[in-house]
Protein backbone atom coordinates (compact mmCIF):
# COMPACT_ATOMS: atom_id res chain seq x y z
CA UNK A 1 0.00 0.00 0.00
CA UNK A 2 2.73 2.43 1.03
CA UNK A 3 4.77 1.45 -2.01
CA UNK A 4 1.90 1.82 -4.47
CA UNK A 5 0.94 5.16 -2.89
CA UNK A 6 4.53 6.36 -3.20
CA UNK A 7 4.71 5.31 -6.86
CA UNK A 8 1.37 6.99 -7.56
CA UNK A 9 2.54 10.16 -5.80
CA UNK A 10 5.80 10.14 -7.73
CA UNK A 11 3.83 9.82 -10.98
CA UNK A 12 1.61 12.72 -9.97
CA UNK A 13 4.66 14.75 -9.01
CA UNK A 14 6.27 14.16 -12.43
CA UNK A 15 3.07 15.07 -14.24
CA UNK A 16 2.76 18.16 -12.00
CA UNK A 17 6.30 19.22 -12.93
CA UNK A 18 5.37 18.71 -16.59
CA UNK A 19 2.59 21.27 -16.14
CA UNK A 20 4.82 23.60 -14.12
CA UNK A 21 7.46 23.75 -16.84
CA UNK A 22 5.03 24.17 -19.73
CA UNK A 23 5.37 27.23 -21.95
CA UNK A 24 4.05 30.24 -19.98
CA UNK A 25 0.86 31.94 -21.12
CA UNK A 26 2.63 35.31 -21.09
CA UNK A 27 6.37 35.69 -20.63
CA UNK A 28 6.18 39.26 -19.34
CA UNK A 29 3.83 38.19 -16.53
CA UNK A 30 6.01 35.21 -15.62
CA UNK A 31 9.10 37.44 -15.54
CA UNK A 32 7.40 39.89 -13.17
CA UNK A 33 6.31 37.01 -10.96
CA UNK A 34 9.85 35.59 -10.88
CA UNK A 35 11.15 38.96 -9.64
CA UNK A 36 8.38 39.07 -7.06
CA UNK A 37 9.18 35.55 -5.84
CA UNK A 38 12.90 36.37 -5.60
CA UNK A 39 11.90 39.17 -3.27
CA UNK A 40 9.38 37.10 -1.27
CA UNK A 41 11.24 33.81 -0.95
CA UNK A 42 14.84 34.92 -1.32
CA UNK A 43 15.44 38.48 -0.18
CA UNK A 44 13.03 38.12 2.75
CA UNK A 45 15.06 35.11 3.95
CA UNK A 46 18.31 37.07 4.19
CA UNK A 47 17.82 38.25 7.81
CA UNK A 48 17.11 34.68 8.97
CA UNK A 49 20.13 33.37 7.04
CA UNK A 50 22.41 36.01 8.56
CA UNK A 51 21.23 35.41 12.14
CA UNK A 52 21.53 31.63 11.89
CA UNK A 53 24.87 31.75 10.09
CA UNK A 54 26.54 34.11 12.56
CA UNK A 55 25.58 31.92 15.50
CA UNK A 56 26.37 28.63 13.74
CA UNK A 57 29.77 29.96 12.65
CA UNK A 58 30.46 31.04 16.22
CA UNK A 59 29.37 27.67 17.63
CA UNK A 60 31.48 25.77 15.06
CA UNK A 61 34.55 27.77 16.04
CA UNK A 62 34.01 27.22 19.77
CA UNK A 63 33.37 23.48 19.26
CA UNK A 64 36.47 23.09 17.14
CA UNK A 65 38.61 24.84 19.71
CA UNK A 66 37.22 22.79 22.57
CA UNK A 67 37.51 19.46 20.75
CA UNK A 68 40.80 19.97 18.97
CA UNK A 69 42.96 19.93 22.08
CA UNK A 70 46.01 18.07 20.82
CA UNK A 71 49.23 20.11 21.13
CA UNK A 72 50.23 18.65 17.76
CA UNK A 73 47.37 20.45 16.04
CA UNK A 74 48.20 24.02 15.04
CA UNK A 75 45.86 26.80 16.24
CA UNK A 76 44.86 27.71 12.71
CA UNK A 77 43.24 24.27 12.29
CA UNK A 78 40.19 25.70 14.10
CA UNK A 79 39.65 28.22 11.29
CA UNK A 80 40.35 25.57 8.66
CA UNK A 81 37.89 23.08 10.15
CA UNK A 82 35.23 25.76 10.61
CA UNK A 83 35.64 26.82 7.00
CA UNK A 84 35.32 23.30 5.64
CA UNK A 85 32.29 22.49 7.80
CA UNK A 86 30.58 25.66 6.61
CA UNK A 87 31.47 25.16 2.95
CA UNK A 88 30.72 21.45 2.80
CA UNK A 89 27.61 21.06 4.92
CA UNK A 90 26.34 24.00 6.89
CA UNK A 91 25.94 26.61 4.12
CA UNK A 92 23.94 24.21 1.96
CA UNK A 93 22.45 21.17 3.70
CA UNK A 94 21.76 22.61 7.15
CA UNK A 95 20.75 25.99 5.77
CA UNK A 96 18.34 24.36 3.32
CA UNK A 97 16.85 22.19 6.05
CA UNK A 98 16.11 25.40 7.95
CA UNK A 99 14.78 27.12 4.83
CA UNK A 100 12.57 24.09 4.12
CA UNK A 101 10.75 25.09 7.30
CA UNK A 102 10.44 28.78 6.49
CA UNK A 103 10.04 28.84 2.71
CA UNK A 104 8.45 25.40 2.35
CA UNK A 105 5.68 25.98 4.86
CA UNK A 106 4.91 29.43 3.45
CA UNK A 107 4.60 27.96 -0.06
CA UNK A 108 2.31 25.11 1.04
CA UNK A 109 0.13 27.52 3.01
CA UNK A 110 -0.11 30.03 0.16
CA UNK A 111 -0.89 27.54 -2.61
CA UNK A 112 -2.99 25.31 -0.34
CA UNK A 113 -5.15 28.24 0.71
CA UNK A 114 -5.57 29.22 -2.92
CA UNK A 115 -6.72 25.66 -3.61
CA UNK A 116 -9.30 25.46 -0.83
CA UNK A 117 -10.67 28.94 -1.56
CA UNK A 118 -11.12 27.98 -5.25
CA UNK A 119 -8.61 30.57 -6.49
CA UNK A 120 -6.78 27.83 -8.41
CA UNK A 121 -10.08 26.67 -9.94
CA UNK A 122 -10.72 30.29 -10.95
CA UNK A 123 -7.36 30.38 -12.76
CA UNK A 124 -8.08 27.07 -14.50
CA UNK A 125 -11.52 28.19 -15.64
CA UNK A 126 -10.02 31.36 -17.10
CA UNK A 127 -7.74 29.09 -19.16
CA UNK A 128 -4.59 29.81 -17.17
CA UNK A 129 -2.18 26.94 -16.51
CA UNK A 130 -2.32 27.42 -12.75
CA UNK A 131 0.66 25.14 -11.99
CA UNK A 132 2.85 27.10 -14.37
CA UNK A 133 1.51 30.48 -13.31
CA UNK A 134 1.89 29.87 -9.57
CA UNK A 135 4.77 27.43 -9.18
CA UNK A 136 7.23 28.04 -12.00
CA UNK A 137 8.14 31.59 -10.85
CA UNK A 138 8.69 30.27 -7.31
CA UNK A 139 11.03 27.51 -8.48
CA UNK A 140 12.96 29.72 -10.89
CA UNK A 141 13.15 32.63 -8.43
CA UNK A 142 14.30 30.60 -5.46
CA UNK A 143 16.73 28.43 -7.42
CA UNK A 144 18.27 31.58 -8.94
CA UNK A 145 18.58 33.30 -5.57
CA UNK A 146 19.74 30.30 -3.53
CA UNK A 147 23.44 30.69 -4.45
CA UNK A 148 23.23 34.28 -3.13
CA UNK A 149 21.84 33.01 0.19
CA UNK A 150 24.52 30.32 0.20
CA UNK A 151 27.31 32.86 -0.27
CA UNK A 152 25.82 35.16 2.36
CA UNK A 153 25.68 32.17 4.71
CA UNK A 154 29.31 31.29 4.06
CA UNK A 155 30.48 34.86 4.65
CA UNK A 156 28.43 35.51 7.78
CA UNK A 157 29.40 32.14 9.29
CA UNK A 158 33.06 33.10 8.98
CA UNK A 159 32.24 36.46 10.56
CA UNK A 160 30.52 34.61 13.43
CA UNK A 161 33.64 32.55 14.01
CA UNK A 162 35.81 35.65 13.80
CA UNK A 163 33.69 37.42 16.44
CA UNK A 164 34.35 34.51 18.80
CA UNK A 165 38.09 34.98 18.36
CA UNK A 166 37.74 38.72 18.96
CA UNK A 167 35.61 38.52 22.09
CA UNK A 168 37.20 35.43 23.68
CA UNK A 169 40.73 34.24 24.13
CA UNK A 170 40.15 30.81 22.60
CA UNK A 171 42.50 31.40 19.66
CA UNK A 172 44.14 34.50 18.20
CA UNK A 173 42.12 36.12 15.41
CA UNK A 174 45.12 36.08 13.11
CA UNK A 175 45.40 32.26 13.46
CA UNK A 176 41.69 31.91 12.72
CA UNK A 177 41.95 34.04 9.58
CA UNK A 178 45.05 32.15 8.51
CA UNK A 179 43.12 28.90 9.03
CA UNK A 180 40.25 30.15 6.86
CA UNK A 181 42.71 30.61 3.99
CA UNK A 182 44.92 27.60 4.55
CA UNK A 183 44.70 24.69 2.07
CA UNK A 184 41.65 26.26 0.47
CA UNK A 185 39.94 24.17 -2.19
CA UNK A 186 37.83 26.21 -4.57
CA UNK A 187 35.82 23.11 -5.54
CA UNK A 188 34.27 23.04 -2.06
CA UNK A 189 32.54 26.35 -2.83
CA UNK A 190 31.21 25.03 -6.13
CA UNK A 191 30.17 21.81 -4.43
CA UNK A 192 28.19 23.81 -1.85
CA UNK A 193 26.57 25.97 -4.52
CA UNK A 194 25.56 22.98 -6.63
CA UNK A 195 24.01 21.27 -3.63
CA UNK A 196 22.15 24.39 -2.55
CA UNK A 197 20.62 24.82 -6.01
CA UNK A 198 19.41 21.20 -6.01
CA UNK A 199 18.02 21.58 -2.50
CA UNK A 200 16.27 24.84 -3.43
CA UNK A 201 14.54 23.01 -6.28
CA UNK A 202 13.49 20.22 -3.89
CA UNK A 203 12.11 22.65 -1.29
CA UNK A 204 9.96 24.63 -3.74
CA UNK A 205 8.79 21.80 -5.98
CA UNK A 206 7.87 19.41 -3.15
CA UNK A 207 6.16 22.13 -1.09
CA UNK A 208 4.24 23.40 -4.10
CA UNK A 209 3.14 19.85 -4.91
CA UNK A 210 1.74 19.37 -1.41
CA UNK A 211 -0.01 22.75 -1.50
CA UNK A 212 -1.41 22.30 -4.99
CA UNK A 213 -3.16 19.02 -4.25
CA UNK A 214 -4.67 19.90 -0.88
CA UNK A 215 -8.26 18.75 -0.46
CA UNK A 216 -10.49 20.01 2.33
CA UNK A 217 -10.04 23.06 4.52
CA UNK A 218 -7.72 24.80 6.95
CA UNK A 219 -6.91 21.59 8.83
CA UNK A 220 -5.77 19.86 5.65
CA UNK A 221 -3.68 22.90 4.66
CA UNK A 222 -1.91 22.65 8.02
CA UNK A 223 -1.30 18.92 7.56
CA UNK A 224 -0.07 19.46 4.03
CA UNK A 225 2.28 22.14 5.31
CA UNK A 226 3.80 19.71 7.81
CA UNK A 227 4.03 16.94 5.20
CA UNK A 228 5.63 19.30 2.70
CA UNK A 229 8.35 20.34 5.16
CA UNK A 230 9.00 16.76 6.33
CA UNK A 231 9.19 15.29 2.82
CA UNK A 232 11.37 18.19 1.56
CA UNK A 233 13.74 17.62 4.49
CA UNK A 234 13.96 13.88 3.83
CA UNK A 235 14.70 14.48 0.14
CA UNK A 236 17.33 17.09 1.03
CA UNK A 237 19.11 14.55 3.24
CA UNK A 238 18.78 11.82 0.60
CA UNK A 239 20.18 14.04 -2.14
CA UNK A 240 22.88 15.24 0.23
CA UNK A 241 24.20 11.69 0.38
CA UNK A 242 23.86 11.17 -3.39
CA UNK A 243 25.52 14.47 -4.31
CA UNK A 244 28.31 14.05 -1.81
CA UNK A 245 29.07 10.66 -3.27
CA UNK A 246 28.92 12.01 -6.83
CA UNK A 247 30.73 15.30 -6.35
CA UNK A 248 33.38 14.62 -3.74
CA UNK A 249 34.61 11.16 -4.66
Amino acid sequence: MLLTDSIANFGRFCSFLGRVFAWPDKFSISFKRVINEISKLGVDSIPLVIIISVFMGAVCTIQMQLNVTSPLMPAYSVGLATRDIVLLEFSNSILCLILAGKVGSSIVSEIGTMRVTEQIDALEIMGVNSANYLVMPKIVGFVMFMPVLDIICMGTSFVGGYLVTVFTDLIPSSRYIYGLQAMFQEWYVWYGLIKSVVFAFIIVSVSSFYGYFVKGGALQVGKASTNGVVVSSIFILLFDVILTKLLLQ
Partner: peptide, 20 residues
Protein backbone atom coordinates in the same frame (compact mmCIF):
# COMPACT_ATOMS: atom_id res chain seq x y z
CA UNK B 1 -9.58 24.12 -27.95
CA UNK B 2 -10.65 23.92 -24.31
CA UNK B 3 -8.24 26.72 -23.47
CA UNK B 4 -9.79 28.89 -26.18
CA UNK B 5 -13.30 28.08 -24.97
CA UNK B 6 -12.39 29.06 -21.44
CA UNK B 7 -11.71 32.59 -22.63
CA UNK B 8 -15.42 32.74 -23.49
CA UNK B 9 -16.39 31.61 -20.00
CA UNK B 10 -16.84 33.73 -16.90
CA UNK B 11 -17.32 32.11 -13.54
CA UNK B 12 -18.53 33.37 -10.21
CA UNK B 13 -17.51 31.07 -7.37
CA UNK B 14 -19.37 30.46 -4.14
CA UNK B 15 -16.57 32.06 -2.10
CA UNK B 16 -15.83 34.66 -4.83
CA UNK B 17 -12.31 33.18 -5.32
CA UNK B 18 -10.70 36.59 -5.64
CA UNK B 19 -6.91 36.65 -5.59
CA UNK B 20 -6.31 37.98 -2.10
Amino acid sequence: QMKELRKEIGMLFQGSALFD
